[in-house]
Design a protein around this nucleic acid. Structure first.
Lengths: 257, 257
DNA sequence: CGTTAATTTGAGACCATTCAATTTCGGTGG
DNA sequence: CCACCGAAATTGAATGGTCTCAAATTAACG
């Protein structure tokens, strides 16, 4: 229900890259695969935005919404989901700080799925028109946005393989590998321990399993000394074996770009 | 193995919209969700391309390829697939005439999955640089391309729900609904009969099932008078019930744009 | 009309689900 | 600081949807 807990307006006083703009996170991430000039950076960081805190499971976007704004996660996690006709939930992706949560819905106009917050997160809300405007004006920012949506699509494809063709053990291991890998820079470590406040039910809905079977599968992975996962914290004890078990190959994350 | 059976060069003599350029198909499709000026149309149709025929199961793009060119399907079908570590195949999407087969790989640079031809298809091969050039130059064409990739991502999401959370019967019904729906304009009919030369193994790999179980499921759908599917031809005998069974809601195809 | 691919059928095994009950955990108020 | 609460995690047992394996039948094609 989108209640706003904190709400500030940030004005773009500086045309120089504001070293402490929250949008710096986006600049850093994009710099990995796009060369951005200092003008690009300045334009991005100069975007007006609203800070907003979301409660656990609060909707950030709701299926059917007309997109008017777009969020960048600053703290915490978010997830996309679709609900089937019988109420079955499938989680489509997880999002970590520094990622745009809704470029696709923003560009398509009508949300075909929902986005919710995992466990209390903070986001910068940007107006759709402002975003489209800098996309029109700055080719490199536009390219970065496009690539962002393409990378997401690539992750969807890998998840399709994961859910469609791998067994429970492999699915869970793969998901954990992906999350750890994507958060490497964020956490300063790939193997953890780091915060991952997902419930087993959420892991289940992301892998197309039941919570019960996810529980048993996690126990097996723990018993074998591959991972340590409890009270919202994950550590990968044996990356190589987990990667093997999870059939994980990071090519699809396109980090080489 | 990309052997070229027919090979012609088409030169862009006319700046006017060439009424019989094969790329007209793309223009028509894009016109559904982007307003294109006659200049846009002319620029697109003036693209140089090579006609190429592909054999059944021949690779159009191979995982790991560096993208140098991009194909538009003119006749026949194509599919994307990923292969898991144990050789399991997951089909990620099907592509019909008038669709770009590889915008994502083209834009990302390195193919993270393969594209193959279903059963003898013909495609217009366009160079990557030419495509990027008109994308830079014509904002509306660029927008259309972006939307194309976003629509594909939307389909991936729906498939994720399909494969992750629905039972065999629903999965198959949903897939058939989607294909019929997407080909409506192409076939002049939604309910068919129309050509759909997919093997049951391909349907299985697209829905995360085995060929055997796909067979039994198809038989059930036939027995109930919902569909007629044989020798590469599909007819939908009761759209409303099939849609119901398949939990199909076309919102995700964004035809309302 | 022969050869190969695709579809169909049967029976048994198994991975994951379902349902229900129990335990643990995190947070809250007394 | 402890008692309490609801949510999350865990356990057990039975069920079932889908898979596996193998063989038979049919269709496609030169």
């Amino acid at each position: 229900m989108m209640q706003e807990n904190r709400l500030h307006q940030f004005a773009p006083e500086l045309r120089e890259v504001p070293a402490n703009s929250p949008l710096e996170m986006v600049v850093q991430r994009w710099s990995r695969y796009c060369h951005l000039t200092s003008e690009d950076r300045a334009a991005l960081c100069a975007l007006r935005f609203t800070l907003r805190t979301f409660q656990r499971d609060e909707y950030m976007v709701r299926e059917g919404d007309i997109a008017k704004e777009c969020a960048v996660i600053l703290r915490g996690f978010a997830y996309r989901q679709k609900i089937g006709g019988d109420g079955q939930r499938q989680i489509l992706s997880f999002h970590i700080p520094g990622e745009f949560v809704d470029l696709q819905n923003t560009m398509l106009g009508v949300a075909d799925h929902s986005v919710q917050c995992v466990n209390g997160c903070e986001a910068a809300i940007i107006s759709r028109s402002a975003l489209i405007q800098i996309a029109d004006q700055y080719p490199r920012l536009r390219a970065a946005m496009w690539i962002d949506t393409l990378l997401e699509a690539s992750i969807f494809r890998e998840w399709l393989l994961n859910v469609g063709r791998r067994d429970a053990r492999t699915r869970i291991a793969h998901l954990l590998c992906e999350l750890a890998f994507r958060m490497t820079e964020l956490n300063g470590t790939r193997d953890g321990p780091f915060r991952l406040p997902l419930t087993q039910e959420q892991l289940a809905d992301a892998t197309g399993l039941t919570a019960v079977h996810t529980n048993r599968t996690l126990q097996a992975l723990r018993r074998e000394g591959l991972i340590q996962l409890s009270s919202g914290s994950l550590a990968i004890l044996d990356w190589e074996r987990l990667r093997e078990v999870g059939d994980f190959d990071e090519l699809y994350l396109h980090r080489h770009i």
